[in-house]
């Protein structure tokens, strides 16, 4: 554990909490892609299958459980409790376009052709593109509430901080993971356009609005 990795985890946690609080306090999930949230829930389930077989630390286990519960809580709020506020007309990204390639790629490129390992690899590939339905939704409506922007910024920062963590681990521990690193770079690059808009608009108090 190093400071970059910890910051990444905290940014991830903050993102998840921002989203839950936004939905809970406004009693609405308008502007949020339920499809992205389903993909994140699937990602966590596939990755944390080792929760009971591979003990790392208390921190690790607790965070895994928190991420799982929070992602299921978010999906529950969107599809059950506040279903009426879910903007499904704008959430039209086809999930199979992301899930099927992630399955195929995880079967072909993995560290070891074993069940848990392939599920882990699938989760890495799926997570890297899981935000696309949300970004697609923002581009379709042409705008995002500031709270949604803060959520996306925290979520994007998480993988960017992990990249710094991987560089640190490579030099300090001689440890690297090509699959996680390449997928993490793809994931972070997907946020670049958003980061630019966030810094130039949202931080200056303006609403995130895409140029017409």
């Amino acid at each position: 554990m190093n400071v970059f990795r910890l910051s990444g985890d905290v940014a991830h946690l903050i993102a998840i909490i921002i989203l839950l609080l936004k939905i809970w306090t406004s009693r609405s999930c308008a502007g949020i892609s339920g499809k992205s949230q389903i993909l994140f829930a699937v990602t966590f389930v596939a990755r944390y299958l080792d929760l009971f077989t591979n003990y790392v630390s208390i921190y690790n286990s607790v965070m895994k459980i928190v991420y799982l519960l929070a992602s299921f809580g978010t999906v529950y709020l969107m599809y059950m409790k506040f279903k009426a506020t879910y903007d499904h007309n704008h959430d039209t990204f086809r999930l199979e376009f992301l899930i099927l390639p992630a399955i195929a790629l995880s079967l072909i490129i993995n560290h070891d052709f074993a069940v848990i390992e392939v599920f882990w690899t699938f989760s890495i590939y799926l997570e890297s593109v899981a935000i696309l339905p949300q970004l697609f939704m923002v581009s379709k409506t042409g705008e995002a509430e500031s709270i949604t922007s803060h959520y996306l910024f925290a979520l994007g920062s998480y993988r960017a901080l992990y990249i710094v963590n991987w560089i640190y681990r490579y030099y300090m521990e001689g440890f690297y993971d090509m699959i996680a690193t390449l997928a993490g770079i793809v994931q972070t690059v997907l946020y670049c356009d958003f980061f630019y808009l966030y810094i130039t608009k949202v931080l200056k108090g303006k609403k995130l609005q895409l140029p017409a």
């Binding site: 990795r5 080792d50 790392v56 560290h111 882990w120 991987w166 440890f175 993971d177």
Partner: peptide, 10 residues
């Protein structure tokens, strides 16, 4: 076997 995995990460 796996040498370069990061399964200790989240």
């Amino acid at each position: 076997s796996i040498k370069h995995n990061m399964h200790d990460e989240l």
